[in-house]
Design a binder for these strands. Structure first.
Lengths: 334, 334
DNA sequence: TTGTACGCGTTATCAA
DNA sequence: TTGATAACGCGTACAA
């Protein structure tokens, strides 16, 4: 059971080197003054014994773990993988280690992850999860854990946030579509429980169309390529055109493939816009029009904000990313 | 600086509840016998004070952290995201928390991640990284950290491994291609420094072709969609056909798009096989032939093996995944 | 420059 | 059933 039976401790090093604990501690932390000879003596025995300081004991003594808790809904989506990559990249630069906490589809699970952040003494947290509301975030911060929240506006003493602005870009795409002579009906693919980001886009879509005095068409859809593909194969038997606004590129591709396989032309009959896009959007043929935010950059920014928060240097507690429209072959250039 | 200034400790709970530390400890660990009344009294004050046990102190006292160190080259690839998802999923079932350690392109960095696993007292480790060799893994295990290694065969006392077998499937695809009347030249896209998995596939390709008495064609290539696309646009000006074997689906798609955009027909002129595939392989048109291994399942298996290792219940220390050929439109059905 | 002694927040072993 | 008290491995004033 005791899996560290023969773990070498600072005490053993001190004994073997003929010095005291404190001296060894000074050597490994490179602080305080130690004679070069003593230092060498200690370093040698450290190497000889294969001693590694216990991060646990260090953390307990210093109140710092260098752990950052990262809460995400799942590691399965490409854009989340990119985000994680950005976070890990800059965490590494700062000498921080990430603990990956994923939450399924319940808020309770998300709450229990907050508990883990607290009990693990994480030095900070990054939350990229829809299910937690501002109160939950305040809770984590009430335990003095500096936190950066992504895709949600929360303010507080030790809280920073990164926001996404898809709305301006989406509104602009829709209105300029009709201004420049686009004449297709616009449809929005609604996915149940797909998070606030999609909900906000849906609201933007609705208000943009209402402002134009046009009909609003929200289609219930599924967050799966295969299901969406099959649904739209049926759909395109009766509807033979339109502008379809989809959440992800895989869903957009489902609509695109269904249209093509139904004998419709993209973009002449059917135009498609994907809200979130990955590198695959440019690989599909035709390429997909998307509204891009570089999620890796978002990850970097979140981590930078957190380190600033840790050192009390965070000026702007709110950071925004504007989505950029990327024209692809799935929409007609006007 | 002291960011836990007002962290509630077990001692404060004991004092407020009028009992001793030991009793509080018994209550939170639900072991030993405590009077229902005392229990309630303690639980109430825990709730009232918002007490959370310090995972650090618990770990120091019990020698168990519930941390699992996961070492991966980067979180950026889709198949790695799937793998991570599988790992996190079953880790959560077992009450374990992951620390995500990514390694860039140097072995030194990978070694320093091993150091982190050791110093963080991780209860176990999962290594999915090409740059570490068996000796490095033995090192981690010499500190009594049970380890599961992915895509490398290592054996030892507290070591398990998960292997990938792409070779049989690849060899079979190639030989049966020619047996069934395929007549194109086979090309293998070599990517520098892309890991042992690809190297093994390349060897398999070479030996398979040599056995058939056919010409071996290895093309130097780049691990980027755009670069590969441009390279092959040039390439297809002189070469007008072939069977191209590519590492990833994005690379395979680059070749496919370059062929199509050069006026060649897929699969009649150009056939394409992607070794590693993601869900996007079925979305491309034509769909890509791939050799699939479910990386999420690999992640689950690795984590299961690790927990078995932790409880000394691991029977088979070697687990294998055979790649399965998935026919897509990028190859002719024969 | 070096060593002593205490604190970090728990668990666990004894007695009571 | 409860309560002292010694670990766990380290950092750090303070004293030498």
């Amino acid at each position: 059971m005791n899996n560290m039976k023969d773990r070498v401790t600072i005490y053993q090093v001190a004994k073997a080197a003929g010095v005291s604990l404190a001296t060894v501690s000074r050597v490994i932390n490179k602080q305080g003054s130690v004679t070069p000879e003593t230092r060498k003596k200690v370093e040698d025995t450290i190497a000889r014994l294969g001693y590694r300081p216990s991060g646990l004991a260090q953390a307990l003594a210093t109140n710092r773990t260098t752990y950052i808790g990262v809460i995400v809904p799942s590691a399965n989506y490409v854009y989340l993988a990119n985000f994680l990559n950005g976070v890990t990249e800059t965490a590494k630069e700062k000498g921080l280690v990430l603990t990956l906490l994923t939450t399924g589809h319940s808020r309770d699970e998300a709450l229990s992850m907050i508990e883990k952040v607290i009990s693990s003494h994480a030095d900070g947290a990054i939350i990229f999860d829809d299910q937690l509301n501002p109160d939950d975030v305040q809770k984590i911060s009430s335990y003095n854990v500096p936190t950066v929240v992504v895709d949600r506006t929360v303010t507080g003493n030790k809280i920073g946030c990164v926001r996404f602005n898809y709305d301006d870009a989406l509104r602009h795409v829709i209105t300029s579509y009709y201004e420049k002579g686009g004449d297709k009906e616009a449809y929005f693919l609604h996915v149940h429980n797909a998070g606030r980001l999609l909900s906000r886009c849906e609201s933007t879509y609705v208000s943009a169309l209402e402002n134009l005095g046009r009909k609003v068409n929200v289609i219930n859809s599924d967050d799966s390529y295969t299901r969406t593909y099959m649904d739209f194969k049926k759909y395109f038997k009766t509807i033979h055109g339109g502008l379809f606004i989809c959440y992800r590129d895989s869903i957009a591709a489902a609509v695109m493939n269904a249209a093509i396989d139904s004998g419709l032309n993209v973009p002449n009959d059917v135009e498609i816009l994907s809200i979130v896009g990955t590198k695959y959007a440019h690989i599909f043929r035709p390429t997909l029009s998307t509204m891009n935010i570089d999620m890796q950059e978002v990850g970097r920014r979140a981590m930078f904000m957190l380190t600033d928060l840790l050192s009390n240097n965070l000026i702007d507690k709110i950071s925004s990313f504007d989505a950029e429209f990327i024209q692809g072959g799935s929409m007609i250039v006007r």
